[in-house]
Design a protein around this nucleic acid. Structure first.
Lengths: 213, 213, 213, 213
DNA sequence: GTCTAACCGAGACGGTACGTCTCGTCTTGCT
DNA sequence: AGCAAGACGAGACGTACCGTCTCGGTTAGAC
């Protein structure tokens, strides 16, 4: 079977084949996109990956573990735009994130997994650790910078800013079932306005900014 | 089985027992709360309801139909606050809605159904028709009133206002897994500020901002 | 599915299809003959019978139950020869029985089942009740007749006579792996001589017979 | 692992550990006694022996080979009685053999292996060569002596005598599931009578018969 | 005294079958 | 015609073993 790179665990026994890891993850992504989370079957994953079922269970004991891992591998890290304008960066980041989620066949899967994570703390932990936190760190860094530079409302906690920025976009997609670029820009613009220092003016903002610095 | 009230459809043959309807719906709610959407089984629903499986299938041909119907029956209509202050009403409505969703064991189920609705247009239709639209109508009425009375930003479409109001709350619950009353009030307050008339008429907006800081 | 004769149990629910009974039993016989007991698989039985696996388990919960039932159905009752000569009848019956067992592909299966019955009293019970007892009754009737008529040694218990008659034939097949007609006749003849009243003479035998009658 | 005696094959490389041989054989015997032939797994044998699975396969490629080897090692050679009285020796030998088989938890295993040997000529060969032949040789020697000394019926072939002697005992155990000492002695006595010199020389035979009746 | 072939344990591999569970349908007798 | 009961073919579940194949490490005869 192909190149058959070995893991470097140093443990006893035959090491797990990284080929199998890759094939199973790829098959999971494919089938999630084709069939959706509810109709995903470990049997079908193993078959598509050309792998025995036990090889899948050995790695990820439940369907949720399998799916979370696949999502973590698959969904790329948020590219962090840096145009010099923090507000613009945030706007682009939030709209881009939501559009990518809404546009991907895996977007709905993220929802299903979140739903299951509500009853499985371990799963929630993995999801939070590998999926949410890395993305959140990127967002938070940008928000902190925005706050430091005085472009964001200092009365709002970073988490609140995050919710105000990303919430409307995700919610729109959730309840309407789609999200166009125009709508996304529209919502991102409005949300940005809600978290920025002031919508219109200069002087007052500058004064307060000096008080912070 | 008890009283055995008959439906009044005027059809031939034995009419469907409304007892069965009720028992099945109740069993569905219970099991959704106990086991979650993914582990819900029509077999278990029928057993819990003390009913044959075909009697369930006769009414709701798929698990999703069954669940959507149960949700529609279960989740109570949004109470419409009317304090005379539209902004306050909206704030209370959004926070109350989100808190009830986050506090109910069925909250996560709504997510799972939304996830499935992404691939099943008929299900999305039912969900939209029986679940989302009635709630949306209430919200929209309030928003229209707020716009008419000049308390909401006229530059924003009603849908955008809805997303800005409800999105942050739902999003917070989605990514953190919980929603406290304090957080809800906080977010509802900030969101309300974002949709209230601030863009053109400066003073009012500035005043509220100062009260926050 | 075909004629679909119903059981007459009078019970509630859908009655078990006798077609399935027949198909599974037939498939079991075939596969036992083709593959032997050890390689027999319930999965293969179900597939060959064109039946779901649970339909097999519903009837016979273990492989052994399935096989015992199939043997009981399959192996035909001993034909009772009645030539007027009891000794000749016994000779033919024992040789015929052993030859049929040794000549059938299912013969070895009987051994395997006996081996398992040693650890499963319930199985031994079924085997004894449905398989051994009916055959034993036939044999015993003949032996009793032989004793009554004075052709068999009255010093020997009926069971002992049975063991002396059938044992050598079965043992030969067991340790050598085959049994020719010549060998069978040979052994049956020798065994018959061992259990008959006297090998050669008349008068003494008659005298003792009068003492019994 | 322990003393680690070396094989003297003259081969290169590390010789096979005789400790492993012993441990595996012992584990096989134990598990056969505990679980029976059908439930014996190579995995369990290896685990019980504290050995890797490949070490078992290296020695005995199939379960049957493993079991036959274990039986050969385990079941002790027939003790050959020599009281001067050949008939008595044969009687004791056959009864002792059957009683030991029926009394051992491995007795049923011999049946199961015989059943499998019916479809596997190579296995039958091993079984015959290592298990049956050595025992048969002992028996045959005694029979030949009995014939030579005129105590056995010269009209009967040695094989026939063997079948007449051992068959009834084994058959009784086979169909009834047990064998008491009394029954064994009884059957051995009757069988011995059947093979002793009775056909031609009348008086001796008649005398013994009278002693029975 | 290396070298090196064959062993050792551990354990993953692709498989097969297990026995169970649930699916959605169908077939009973009863209401 | 609806009802409960329950069997039906189908098929996925998660587990147990199969027989094979690496692994990192011995072990001991051959060089």
């Amino acid at each position: 079977m192909g190149e058959e790179r070995k893991g470097a665990t140093g443990r006893r026994g035959r090491p797990r084949s990284t080929d199998v890891d890759r094939a199973v993850t790829a098959a999971t992504i494919e089938l999630l996109a084709e069939q959706g989370y509810a109709r995903l079957t470990i049997e079908a994953v193993a078959a598509r990956a050309g792998v025995g079922r036990p090889a899948v269970y050995r790695r990820w004991p439940t369907k949720d573990d399998l799916v979370v891992h696949a999502l973590v591998e698959q969904v790329p890290p948020l590219p962090v735009p840096d145009t010099g304008d923090v507000l613009r960066d945030l706007k682009e980041m939030s709209a881009g994130f939501a559009l990518r989620l809404a546009g991907s066949p895996l977007g709905r899967t993220v929802l299903a997994v979140h739903a299951e994570a509500g009853r499985r703390p371990d799963l929630a932990e993995v999801l939070r650790h590998h999926y949410l936190n890395p993305r959140d760190a990127t967002i938070r860094a940008l928000i902190e910078r925005g706050l430091a530079e005085g472009h964001l409302d200092p009365a709002l906690a970073p988490d609140t800013i995050r919710d105000l920025l990303f919430g409307p976009l995700i919610y729109h997609w959730l309840v309407t079932g789609h999200l166009t670029t125009a709508t996304a820009n529209n919502l991102a613009h409005a949300a940005c306005a809600a978290v920025s220092r002031t919508v219109t003016a200069g002087p007052v903002a500058r004064t307060e900014r000096r008080m912070q610095g």
